[in-house]
Amino acid sequence: MSDGRNIVIRDVSKFYGDVLGVNRVDLEIEPGITSLVGPNGSGKSTLMNLLAGLLRPTRGEISVLGLPVTRPQDLFRRFGYCTQYDSFPRGATGWQFVFSYLLLHGLDRGEAERLTARALERVGLVDSAHRRIAGYSKGMRQRIKLAQAIAHGPQVMVLDEPLNGLDPMVRAETIELFRQLAGEGQHVLISSHILHEVDLLSDRVILISNGYIVAEGEVPGMRAEVEEVREQPLQVFVRCDRPQWLAGRAFELDHVTEVQLHDDGGGLHLRTRDADRFLRLVAELVAEGGVEVEAVGPADSDLQAVYRYLVDEEEEPS
């Protein structure tokens, strides 16, 4: 049961006529960085638009911090949404864009100016603030949208593909900004199809495919928690001086299903249904002096691996 601090989605479905948007989504999202990951068309934006009240659920109910999403006058004092739409009011400069919508929160001009300046500073757009958005690069447009979404200091930030179009430096700064916001106790819900990024920055991950939530949880524990994944062979890598010999020993084990030597001849990848037993074997061989191991570890316990197991190969994101 929600205590009004979380985002609660209860049995929510959304159909566009006969087309499924999302189906039977049940989630309770706590403060921190949560990533919503799925391929294009999987239902990420639909779910986010439902959270913001831009779409109405066909079934189920949603509340954000205990507020129904049908009450914008209360919800949007605490909620900021950076949508996927790359469009802006015609002729607006970056400053005007952030400032004018802040005035709609009922702030006086002085306070609105202060918050506009702070938001532009946080996204690194101070120097371009008085240029027209129409002349901004893709990355700058992405950042000005982000500034507008966070300017009023919302407790919940929903950000649809916020890292799209950002160069590596700005990307790193933006991720750091998300961490700061989450560190202040806020909800930061990010959608992405770039898995290695959310893997690094998220506290929790929600995997969505074809409108269904296929897994959710903390990234390190997700693999273990998902039974379907646990039954899949785990990929392990070993960097060593005698990979061919080690491959031969590995094939003697019944739980090893596949071995692949590295092109440089300095290691191997293998798939095993019992990684613990394989790692014990490696430790014994090292102790016996049979092989010198430079590095060993799971190669696919990250989010990408979980995703690959749960979502059809043809839908696999980048």
Partner: peptide
Amino acid sequence: TVAQETATPSRIDWTLLARQVGGLVRL
């Protein structure tokens, strides 16, 4: 409902609303 469990009915702050409407009219 989920929302009703925790949401408190909001009273209208007319001064605030007037500022918001003023902002939108100017925009």
